Amino acid sequence: MSQAAFITATLDPAAPVPRGISDGQGRATTKRFNVYRNNVVVGLKDALGAGFPAVKSLVGNAFFDAMAGAFVRAHPPKSPVMPLYGAGFSAFIAAFPPAASLPYLADVARLEWAMRCAYHAADAPAIAPNRLTDPAAFAARITLAPAVHIVCSPYPILEIHSAAFGGTSPTGAAQDVMITRPQFDPVLQAFPKGTSAILTALNTGTPLGEALERAPHTLDLTAFIGALMSGGAITHLEDIA
C-alpha cells in the first residue's frame, strides 16, 4: 500500500479500506478506518474554520462545512503545520459555484490568509520614526517588513470582514487593505483603490518619494506614511550621502 493510496482513501468517504490495513487477526478494519477517516476530515475542516472565521461567519456553519469538505478532499495538506493549511482556499472559493452569489467572499478569504501570513512572518525591527523627518529620506530606497501585505478588492472587504463579526453594514467601495504587525497581532487599515501601487514600487527598489507619486489622488499621504511608521512597516532606509 502506497502513502498516496492511503491519503486518497482517507479523504474519500466512498473509497474502500486500503489493502493491507487489518486488525491483529488479519481482518479488515472498516469501522475503525471510517472513524479515523472522519476524524481526519473533521480536523482539517476545523483548521479551515479557525483560519477563516469571517468567511465562516458570512456563509454560516452548514455552508462552510460543505465548502470546506470539498476543499479538503481536493486539496489535502502538503505540510504537517496546520497554520500553513488553506493557502489556496480563496482561489477555491472563487471557482466554487455555490459561492457565486457572494462575489466578495474569495477576497475576504484572501484577507484572512494575508493576516495569517503576517502573523507568522519573521520578526524585523523597524527604523526609528524620526528617520523620515530628513527630507533626503524621500530619495532613499526602503525595505518593508516581511509582515507587510496588501490585499486589493473591488469590494469594501475590511468593512465586510468587520460586519462578519457584528460590525456595521458595509457602505464603502473598493479598498486596498494594508496589513502590518507592529507587535504581536496584525493591524488592518483600508486605503483607496490604487494604494497598492506604492508598496509594489517600494518592493521593486523605487525610492520612497517616487513611489509615493504613484498614489491615487484620493489617498491621504500623511495618514498612509503614518500607518507605515506606526505599523513598524519600514525596516531599512538606504543611507543617503
Rank of each mutant, 00 (worst) to 15 (best):
7 I>A: 14
9 A>S: 15
12 D>P: 11
15 A>N: 12
18 P>Y: 13
23 D>A: 09
27 R>K: 13
27 R>D: 13
28 A>F: 09
28 A>Q: 10
30 T>E: 14
37 R>H: 07
39 N>V: 03
39 N>H: 13
40 V>S: 07
41 V>D: 01
51 G>H: 11
52 F>K: 02
56 K>S: 11
62 A>R: 11
66 A>W: 06
67 M>W: 02
68 A>S: 07
84 L>S: 12
84 L>D: 14
85 Y>K: 12
86 G>C: 00
86 G>A: 03
106 A>I: 02
106 A>G: 10
113 W>K: 13
114 A>D: 03
116 R>M: 11
117 C>R: 14
118 A>R: 08
121 A>P: 15
123 D>W: 08
125 P>C: 03
125 P>H: 02
127 I>E: 08
130 N>K: 10
131 R>P: 12
134 D>R: 13
134 D>E: 15
135 P>W: 15
145 A>M: 08
146 P>N: 00
146 P>A: 01
156 P>Y: 02
159 E>C: 06
165 F>R: 05
165 F>L: 03
167 G>S: 05
168 T>A: 14
174 A>T: 00
175 Q>G: 11
176 D>I: 01
179 I>L: 10
179 I>W: 02
182 P>S: 07
187 V>K: 14
191 F>Y: 08
197 A>C: 06
197 A>V: 03
199 L>P: 00
204 T>Y: 01
204 T>G: 01
204 T>F: 01
205 G>F: 04
206 T>E: 09
208 L>M: 07
209 G>T: 11
221 L>V: 15
223 A>R: 11
232 G>I: 10
233 A>R: 04
237 L>W: 00
240 I>V: 14
241 A>Q: 09
